[in-house]
Nucleic acid binder design. Structure first.
Lengths: 207, 207, 207, 207
DNA sequence: CATGAATGAGCCTTCATTCAT
DNA sequence: TATGAATGAAGGCTCATTCAT
């Protein structure tokens, strides 16, 4: 009985928190980052100002949560994509699939405005970006694995050290997503990415 | 007599404006974008607050001027660099020289923080970015010219349409500068850029 | 049956109230007055926020209770101390014992921070200080009794009217405790108090 | 001409600052310390909120200024009072004059409410009390000098070490002013102080 | 009796902008 | 042209208190 009530209350609380969070995300995707104030969030969410601070320690904490959520949404499927290939698959092929997957996730799940916000936060350097940094490391690790496999399999020429090669691939994905962000909707991320990485792969393939 | 005085005043005015502007640029390059307030600018420039609004309609106007200046500083030498090569020079070689020049300009003349500011403004989409857009077009044009020349000379394979190829090169330069911004000072822009474009060139060279 | 249950509930209620109160007292003694919020009290007591308002009409009511408690804790033993002496004991001696007892109580039972809180409230004049005022009267009465006895016994010179003399002693105890509060822990209340009152007693002893 | 204008502006600014400060002092003397908000100050002073922050870095800075002002008002005349006596004057006499002067200053210049505020701040321990601490040291120094002189002259018995004796006198002045604060206006500070110190002096005089 | 989610007035502070001189 | 005092909207955050369950 008591537990039941407690449960219901907790549920209500969770709902409010989610409402606040979703509202915030929506606003982040609609307005510029600095324009999304706590005032606006609570007004849009239809709760009192104090309520915000029950669920988020500060505005920064909300942003951290936003970033974490971004990372979580992104991070999930990539390894799965990777693991879905038979061990002897062509490294190039896997890599292009991964790129494809990333493009789909950015386009379909994250959305361009959220991505802008992430980039702005990263440039602002005001926030704790460890979550995003962690994700970057993960992405780096996946590229490194694939490239290493490709080198071992003799697909790619080993002219460059692995870590440097990997960095170039990360740079490429960064340039592509950034360009997508600021050219949206006039930039077909997936097509551009596939084409772009095809060039890079051609540039490192062992003749 | 009156004209003379007017002239002197104008000169003094220009000087004050330049002082304000240069101070602002210095601050943009030193502190985070949001930390550069009008107060700080006028204090650092040693003029009164009201004076700022004589020369700049608003803070946004200053930023617009800052962007224009960025573009101007960047834009100047590239064509010169391009024109300094004999007409029959290798397109790859010219392209790498251009990349080298761009890296030098970003590193030496513009500075990482200013670049961050430019990127943030671009993402914020609050400002009138026509100047920067114009510059982008210019950069695009130069890459296009070079790539076209390379294709004509048989250096590059014509698998991709010229404009698409050009876009890839723009994407690459964008990814490189962005990465430089957020990794600074642990990212050697020039070296990375040269290495990166070498791969791209290898990827499109006609075998 | 119903009564029994009611009784149990009441008991439980009393227990909760005491828990809240004791927690509050502990916090008042640990942190600065303004830092002790209802939130912190209920968290430290392990009860819900609403529960606080079942037992205390407001935060001010809690403070009033705190003051009353302070007075009660202080007031209890003094008369006992006084009565423990044979009727013909030296008044000076009794007075010094009383001072000693007071110092012990402040140091051991009340604590310096609580004392600070009492003083702050007294200065703030926002609260109903009747309890403390009553205690002051009580203390005043005891000093008056002792001094009167001393005068009657010829220990003290009767130059000053009794009430004025008493006031001086109250002033002295006030000065000592205040100094203890703000110098804590670099002020040995008991030693200082005994030494201080010795001077006063020397100052009023009959030639 | 220019200087003239600058001077006029500065004067105006000073006037505003004084207006703010005086208003604040008035409010400190009227309402409880925590009730005096920046909002109320600026409203009472008839200026905009932002104006407050032109002249005071923060609310704390205002309070610090308030304390400094208190100390300045207090500190000025004491040494003068001391120095006005011929070198061979009776130490007791000088001391009583000093007490008299102090009482006059507290009563006439400082005022009881300001004193309350000072005490509250001291108890709150939240503020930088170095100014007040400095003043306390000064007061301590003066008492020490006088007592030392009295001992040397054989007026006072040297039973207690000088510093301990001095401390008792500081305690006494503290007790007296505190009692004055909370009993005001039913406590004649000057009369009480003189009578009180007379007892102390009698208590330490060498018979 | 107990809970804890929700409230909202109020606090301190910042900063782009205006305007009389 | 130059000044700098003054403005006031807005922002992030706190906390005593209420109330449905």
């Amino acid at each position: 009985m008591k537990n039941e009530e407690t449960g219901r209350k907790k549920q209500k609380g969770e709902k409010t928190k989610r409402k606040l969070f979703n509202t915030a995300v929506r606003l982040f995707n609609q307005y510029d980052f600095g324009e999304v104030t706590v005032d606006r969030i609570v007004e849009a969410a239809g709760v009192a100002k104090g309520t915000f601070y029950i669920y988020f320690e500060s505005k920064d904490a909300l942003i951290a949560a936003f970033l974490l959520d971004y990372v979580n949404r992104v991070d999930t499927d990539y390894r799965a994509t990777l693991d879905s290939f038979p061990p002897d698959t062509n490294a190039s092929q896997i890599l292009l699939s991964l790129i494809s997957k990333i493009a789909d996730t950015l386009t379909g799940t994250i959305g361009c405005q959220s991505m802008r916000t992430v980039y702005k936060l990263q440039l602002a350097d005001t926030m704790d970006m460890s979550a995003v940094k962690g994700y970057d490391r993960e992405l780096y690790g996946m590229f490194a694995d694939l490239l290493e496999r490709g080198i071992e399999r003799g697909e790619f020429s080993p002219i460059l050290p692995l870590n440097e090669l990997t960095r170039h691939f990360v740079v490429a994905i960064r340039g592509l997503s950034y360009e997508w962000c600021i050219r949206y909707p006039d930039f077909d991320l997936k097509a551009q990415a596939l084409s772009h990485f095809q060039i890079l792969l051609d540039g490192i393939k062992s003749n």
